[in-house]
Design a protein around this nucleic acid. Structure first.
Lengths: 209, 209, 209, 209
DNA sequence: AATGAATGAGTGTTCATTCAT
DNA sequence: AATGAATGAACACTCATTCAT
């Protein structure tokens, strides 16, 4: 059996085990057994547990970003892009829960090198959303001086909300990924629109609390 | 030294080690040493590593919800309650990063029993936000039939956004916790208000993508 | 059982196993079993296989040099000192063959850190012999300008001869350690005496061979 | 490429790796890679790691004894034979340090079968020296009853001294192999001569120490 | 109330060795 | 004649956990 195929089988098994057990509780023995190969072969092809985990993160990060990108047509209006991106994101995470666990939980929980790997992917998604928010602001013609760090914060908030809703939709019976996407899209687009029209909420002066 | 005090010292040490090293990489040896007691004493008081971790989660979950509750006066308007809650949340997580790591990362990453423990706290916070959203809807007199699962989704999204911004504010230079809270509050309140006034975003018909 | 005692038991076992199997072929399992303790205890007390090996080398090097020193009275004439030193050396190596294997074979064969440890002991013995040769030269009043590096070379040769004879005496039936010492002493003292009296052997001019 | 040539390449690589890493730390992978062939080919030609190591020892033992024999003309006087043999020995070991490491360190350190192989070569060299010592005794016409085991011991001592000096000359700056040979030759020949003339050193009675 | 001493069970990792081709 | 693919067996090392005191 050619090496490339075997390697993908190993990564499949590793993502599953890492996603379900967690990085540290996952044993190379179990991964090898699930992949149907001997442990030395896993080491021959993937070097070490750390390298194997990194390979999992990279593969699944690429798969997720690719799925989102594939769902979005950049020639459509910003709202449509955001909607399509959300749909693709919710769908992919729902279809690959172990991969999502690896990216969203495990990678962030086990030290800098792995967290950085997952952060790179997240940064890419946040950049995508940041661009959409900026485009929406431009389309609204209203608030040209929306401060840069506020745009960044909005993108962060949107991504965080999506991550949270992905888990919620996956675990709450009676809630589909589409409904979750719809709820978030409604909320986000309304909020962005209102912000663009200058409707701001004024916090009370510091120290009053 | 009375048992209750010793126990708190042990929990302090455990939260710090668990938060920094992660649940599995944390060793009972290190925790006992940091607490300044012998390992058998840790076992005598807290039974096992799992129980110790559970105790950490419970204590920190209680501390966080208490901090948020303490920051909110339920006799004030909903927007003010949300603002105050966000401020308290951002402040507490910024001041107790190890505790936040335990609740937000470690507890969710290492199996059902722990995840459930952290989820209970999160549910409480989500309930609080849910109530605020409902109150806001009532105050707006406009959309009495905002579906229940949409309200729940909005609360989920808000909490997720807050979690995401907490990490962002803590790691991005030049962004204060207050700015993050402000950005989120603006966005959320505008979005909620617009939603209440019936401004919805209509998704394109399924299958077009 | 107190720690110090256990540690010596472990070192006893380790010297035996290292001496018989060699550093790499020795397994920590076997050492622990021979010492009558569990493997983790060996690690608790001696840290690692490398540290355990180093501890063996150090202990046995100290024991050997101590034995030689204890056999020699520095207020006696040089010939008597050399004789007593040789006797002590042959006796100690014959009585502790595993320790001698560790010092003479294993330590030199498995990398710099260990070799350096054993070399330090050997250097000490060579220095002792060097001093004796120098004293002998002074006592002979004859050859004050015996070049320094020749004295060093003689000491090296003597120590090498002793090492070689130690193994020979231990493995050749019918040859006692005392006889070996006697042979070497005769040879060495005659050679030194002749050298001191200026009897030199002239090598043929270079290139003739 | 003919088998015989390939085999020598493998042995070249093996001697280098065994000499530098040691028998156990040497890996068949590294040897095969250095030899520029695949691992199965090494097994096809040389059967096993043990057989490969034995082949290395045998080849290098033969090479060393051949070099010494080639340096000696048995029709010359005994002193000249000894001198020439020493020169050849020092030169060969200096020029093939990995081979010398294999013979002098590795082979003796890793179990009977290998040690016996190296001991056979050493025995041959010791025999050669023994013969020279006996010839020297005969030439001196003085001490016909030099006991046999003393002659053997002298030869052992001489060979040990040479081995020791070989290492010393190779690692001490400012000392050439020729100087080392000269020092040893001077010492040995003077000592032998004195012994032959009956100058003996009388040990003090036992038990006095 | 508190601990020094001790371990069973399991981990990641390596390596000599063998087939099928 | 030569190899890519694969493995069984073993090893160093760690850790949660428990006695005896």
């Amino acid at each position: 059996m050619p090496r490339a195929v075997r390697e993908q089988q190993m990564l499949d098994a590793a993502v599953q085990i890492f996603g379900q057990r967690g990085y540290m509780a996952a044993s190379m023995d179990e991964i090898a057994e699930l992949a149907g190969v001997s442990k030395p072969l896993v080491y021959l092809y993937l070097n070490s547990k750390e390298d194997l985990f990194t390979a999992c993160i990279r593969r699944e990060a690429t798969a997720l970003t690719r799925a989102v990108r594939a769902g979005v047509r950049t020639d459509l209006p910003a709202d449509r892009q955001l909607w399509d991106g959300l749909r693709a994101f919710f769908q992919h995470t729902a279809e690959h829960p172990d991969a999502w666990s690896v990216l969203h939980l495990q990678a962030r929980t086990h030290g800098e090198p792995f967290a950085a790997e997952a952060a790179a992917m997240r940064t890419e998604i946040v950049s995508f959303v940041t661009r959409l928010v900026a485009v929406a602001a431009r389309e609204a013609h209203r608030d040209p001086d929306l401060p840069e760090h506020e745009v960044a914060g909005l993108a962060e908030a949107l991504v965080g909300a999506a991550e949270s809703l992905a888990a919620w939709a996956n675990t709450t019976p009676g809630v589909t990924a589409r409904q979750a996407a719809s709820t978030l899209m409604n909320f986000a687009w309304s909020g962005l629109g209102a912000l663009m029209r200058g409707r701001r909420w004024t916090p009370p002066p510091e120290g009053v609390v």
